Amino acid sequence: MNDSHIALLRSLHDEHAPALWRYVRRLTGDDELSRDVVQEALLRAWRNPKVLEQGPTAARAWLYTVARNVVIDERRSARARWEIGSERLPERARSDHSDSALDAWLVADVLTQLTPEHRAVIVRAYYMGQSVAELAVALDLPEGTVKSRLHYGLRALRLALEEKGVTGR
């Protein structure tokens, strides 16, 4: 589409969209649906540039015809027949912390099955936020040993969770 078509479409919108919306609003009684119908009519005009070249009177008649047909199609659709509108919005979903509480309970239970050495580094690293260097100093261990205990402790934790039926997420 070239610049002249864009200019014609823009002028078509500016000149006819408000009146077209009022016309569709009278047909539907619904502000939002009216906006959607006007947008659809203008979109179809954009897709069919020959309409724009016929002159403002013919383009206006074409837009009104398209809008009326879109309203008719909407009323015939299954959505219009089966959906029930509501003035009130449904309740908002409330956050449910039960899943995270159950997860924490399950992990705490599985942590008790680990060796004290593995449990200590996992709890300090993941729950207390200590780094490998901080763990090495606090536990009086070489950093390599701390890394090894973290690796094997997490592996044992994963296996214990899998035994309880928890799969990787």
Results as ranks from 00 to 15, higher is better:
151 H>G: 08
48 N>T: 15
130 Q>W: 06
118 H>L: 04
113 Q>C: 09
21 W>T: 00
53 E>D: 06
25 R>G: 02
158 R>K: 11
10 R>E: 10
60 R>Y: 00
116 P>Y: 05
128 M>Y: 14
101 A>W: 08
129 G>R: 14
86 S>T: 15
124 R>G: 10
143 E>P: 10
14 D>V: 07
55 G>S: 05
23 Y>Q: 11
66 V>M: 06
93 A>D: 15
57 T>H: 07
156 A>D: 10
133 A>K: 09
153 G>Q: 10
36 D>W: 00
9 L>R: 07
23 Y>D: 13
91 E>P: 02
158 R>N: 03
26 R>F: 05
18 P>V: 01
62 W>P: 05
24 V>Y: 01
9 L>A: 06
159 L>R: 13
49 P>A: 10
74 E>N: 12
56 P>R: 15
59 A>P: 05
135 L>K: 00
96 D>F: 05
86 S>G: 13
53 E>Y: 01
98 S>D: 03
134 E>V: 10
41 A>P: 00
44 R>I: 00
54 Q>R: 06
48 N>H: 15
144 G>M: 10
66 V>W: 09
157 L>T: 06
98 S>I: 05
78 A>R: 13
18 P>T: 12
128 M>P: 03
153 G>T: 03
158 R>F: 04
82 W>H: 14
118 H>C: 13
48 N>Y: 09
63 L>Q: 13
146 V>D: 05
47 R>T: 12
55 G>C: 01
146 V>R: 02
154 L>G: 08
167 T>G: 00
69 N>E: 06
5 H>N: 12
114 L>T: 08
97 H>R: 15
108 A>W: 01
161 L>T: 01
121 V>L: 08
105 W>M: 14
126 Y>S: 09
22 R>K: 13
94 R>K: 15
115 T>N: 00
124 R>S: 12
12 L>G: 07
19 A>L: 12
76 R>I: 01
111 L>V: 08
56 P>Q: 10
22 R>Q: 04
54 Q>W: 04
22 R>M: 02
5 H>R: 14
35 R>Q: 11
22 R>W: 08
82 W>N: 11
